[in-house]
Simulated scan of single mutants.
Amino acid sequence: MTDHEHATQVIYLGGLGRSGTTLLERLLGELPGVMALGEVVHLWERGVLAGQPCGCGAPFPACPFWRQVGERAFGGWSARLAERVLTLRRRVDRTRRVPRIAHPDLGDYVQVYRRLYAATGARVVVDSSKHASLACCLASGGIDVRVVQVVRDPRAVAHSWGRTVERPEDGLPMTRWGPARTALHWTAQNAALELLARRGVPVTTVRYEDLLADPGPALAALGHELGLDETAAGLSFIDGRTAWLGPSHTVSGNPMRFQVGRVKLRRDDSWATAMAGGDRRVVSLLTWPLRLRYGYRGAA
């Protein structure tokens, strides 16, 4: 299979983790002609090298879908390939490079993703890698990418990053960050995505709170914005604030990537009562310009 046999549109979910990107990816992945791939940026380390489970439950090396993608794109997965991509990522794919992403290895790095996306056989894929730097690489490398910037109240995000959540893949706790670190990363990622939009990259902003307030119409509006003409006819899996999700082949992401069947769509606003006042003030202060831009006001 050559890179030109199949034109793949990429919907790239950007923002900071714990903002609802995995939920949105799962919903988009239920639409006709759309395939959710998870956080592809972590495929090389967590899938190829560590053999962690695919969203379908099978270990990455044993998943028939990913085995076929690897054969089509690269003649099979290998540690050598993964190490090469990780080396390219360290050279090219860095947030600090977003203002000027040009690099001699950019073409080789983007070509790997181009081949991988095409090898899925899907017309539209969803990559929820989140990092603005990878979105910048893909757009600069000529891939047909539509960025969806997923934002959530930074105080809610910081509260989530401070909680202990077990990873189903290995039983270990997910990474935890303090309020100040989360606030700085929230600002950096969203500011970088704003920069991409000013450069002409198609960026659509979706607030977590708006998505959960009325999931069906919010998803239909997003689908229309992204040019997914079949969206309105493909929303039978959503009934009010309930969704029915089928198995997925996501390679990394929030634990909800493993959920199948009936899923309640409701906001997590536990931060409003459980977050310490001092932590709330720190996050509010460090994020205030963009926080107000996205409509997150209220008391600190």
Rank of each mutant, 00 (worst) to 15 (best):
G142F: 08
D153K: 07
S160G: 06
H185G: 01
R176W: 10
D170F: 12
T120E: 03
A118H: 05
P104N: 11
A158L: 09
A102R: 14
A183E: 03
V147N: 01
D108N: 11
S129P: 13
A183N: 05
T187E: 13
A192I: 12
A119F: 06
L193T: 02
W186P: 02
W161G: 03
V148Y: 02
G162S: 15
A139E: 05
R176Q: 13
G142I: 08
E166A: 12
S128R: 14
L106K: 01
H131K: 15
R146G: 02
V151H: 00
Q149Y: 06
R181L: 09
A158D: 04
D127P: 12
G171Y: 15
V151D: 01
V98D: 02
R91P: 04
S140Y: 08
R167E: 09
R146N: 07
V92Y: 04
R123Q: 14
A132T: 09
H131D: 10
P179E: 05
H159I: 11
G142L: 08
L193E: 00
A119E: 04
A135M: 12
H103N: 01
V148K: 01
T95Y: 08
T164I: 12
T95F: 10
A122M: 14
P168Q: 13
D93H: 14
V148M: 03
V157L: 06
C137F: 06
A156F: 04
T95C: 09
C137D: 01
A102T: 06
G142A: 04
G178C: 07
A183R: 10
K130P: 09
V85I: 08
D153C: 06
L193N: 00
E194C: 09
D153W: 07
L106A: 00
L88V: 04
A192G: 04
G178L: 10
G171S: 10
R91I: 10
L106Q: 01
S133Q: 02
D127N: 13
D153Y: 07
E169S: 15
P179R: 14
D170W: 12
D93N: 14
L86A: 03
R152G: 00
C136R: 05
C137A: 03
Q111I: 06
H103Q: 00
H159Q: 11
I101W: 01
G107M: 11
E169N: 14
V165Y: 10
R91D: 02
T182P: 07
A156I: 06
V112R: 04
H185Q: 13
S160A: 15
V112Q: 04
A188Q: 09
R89H: 09
L184G: 01
A156M: 06
A180N: 00
V85M: 02
V110Y: 04
R97I: 04
D105P: 02
R167G: 06
R115K: 13
P173D: 10
V150E: 02
Q111T: 13
G162M: 15
L138A: 03
S133P: 07
S160L: 10
V92H: 05
R115E: 01
R89A: 09
G121K: 03
W186V: 00
R84V: 05
L106S: 00
L172A: 15
L134I: 11
R90Q: 12
A118C: 05
R97C: 02
E194D: 15
W177S: 02
R89M: 13
L172H: 14
A188E: 08
E194V: 12
V85F: 00
G171T: 11
